[in-house]
Design a protein around this nucleic acid. Structure first.
Lengths: 202, 202
DNA sequence: CGATTTGTCTACCGACCGGTAGACAAGGCA
DNA sequence: TGCCTTGTCTACCGGTCGGTAGACAAATCG
């Protein structure tokens, strides 16, 4: 047994937990099934995380960091306000493509209440501030429709996350539309929608 | 014991179930706590609904009918495309104001997968068709930005429902903002956002 | 080499949850 | 009046879940 264990196990468990919390909800996913999926017994999982809630917190922080890294990478080298908005949305959709349960987990985190969600949001706070300042600048320079920048950011968030998580609704509204192609269609749609909504009134 | 029971009990149970399914999720809410909340034993609830899933289906149909009635009432007498869109959004926000768990329940229904969500959506199908046709007309007459009307309806849905259900996110993004005043702010924001997004490109 | 830490396991417990069986009382009906 | 349906209850069962106790083996370190 190579003593490389430790951290690696931890991250594997967290990844699987995000997967199952996203798919089945916090209550719906059992630590037993998470442990089994990682190829380990429940008690081994409890060795790394003292209880289910601690596992959740680890997932929230990990998810925040992952999303933060994605967004930071997307912003690199982008200068204009529209390039940035587009890059962030594209980055988030890319993350959703390679990790479909990720947006569902974030939504579940929000459902669990502010206490849980803040664990996730705190990691992203610097980016949140940057985004609001940036939207404010765009409004000052007349490139973005004037409004409350924080509320705008909230509405943008709901539009993007909703588009990523409401697959059942998509199915009911536009008919069967699944897989990677659907995700690309939705990304394009959200981009057009957001661009139109940001455009200043003449 | 007045023999008025029956239907009234049923609807009371369904209302409470929507409440708890919305607040705690399908898995998180137990039929026992639902029964207790309406002042009855679990076995009495099981007398009306053979099992938990049957209760859920009854909730889905009831929710669909309630939302359908709300939207239909909102549409009455409205002629222009913008009056209609605004009336529907206002109606949905009104429903959310008097029944806060309702949007959460709808989102939970979507989370449970297409099979469950269709029970809810089927009731609303006539309205869905009307909405798409109506958006199409608006595009043909140049009053609405040209795009896929079904995808537009989906994006509008996600924006409205997201704004109603992501309270934790709102808290994290714009700071503490609760109660009826917050709901009104969000309604105004969504209205502005949607109006800007629908506006045709010059 | 021996002591200790690290990691994984088996065995078990108490709580809860969904659902069944069936007693029982009160209203409606022939 | 007496039977039957309707509605509500107590009692219980099997399964799952989160969590504890503690045995045990391999790796590490003085």
């Amino acid at each position: 047994m190579p003593r490389t264990g430790g951290e690696q196990r931890r991250t594997t468990i967290v990844a699987e937990a995000i997967h199952q919390f996203g798919r089945d909800g916090y209550k719906g996913a059992s630590i037993e099934s998470i442990a089994t999926a990682v190829g380990v017994r429940k008690q081994t999982l409890l060795y790394y995380f003292p209880n289910k809630e601690a596992l959740l917190e680890a997932c929230l922080v990990a998810a925040g960091e992952r999303l933060g890294a994605t967004i930071a990478a997307a912003l690199e080298g982008k200068e204009t306000y529209w390039d940035r908005a587009e890059a962030v949305i594209h980055g988030v959709f890319g993350l959703a493509a390679e990790w479909p349960e990720f947006p569902m987990f974030v939504r579940e985190a929000a459902r669990l209440g502010p206490t849980a969600f803040d664990r996730f949001a705190d990691v992203l706070d610097p980016l949140r501030r940057r985004a609001i300042g940036f939207l404010q600048d765009g409004m000052d320079s007349g490139e973005i429709r004037k409004q409350d920048p924080a509320m705008l950011l909230f509405t943008l968030y709901t539009a993007v996350v909703g588009s990523l998580t409401e697959a059942s609704v998509l199915n009911a509204v536009v008919g069967s539309d699944t897989g990677q192609a659907s995700l690309r269609r939705r990304e394009r749609e959200v981009l057009l929608f957001v661009r139109a909504a940001l455009r200043p009134t003449d």
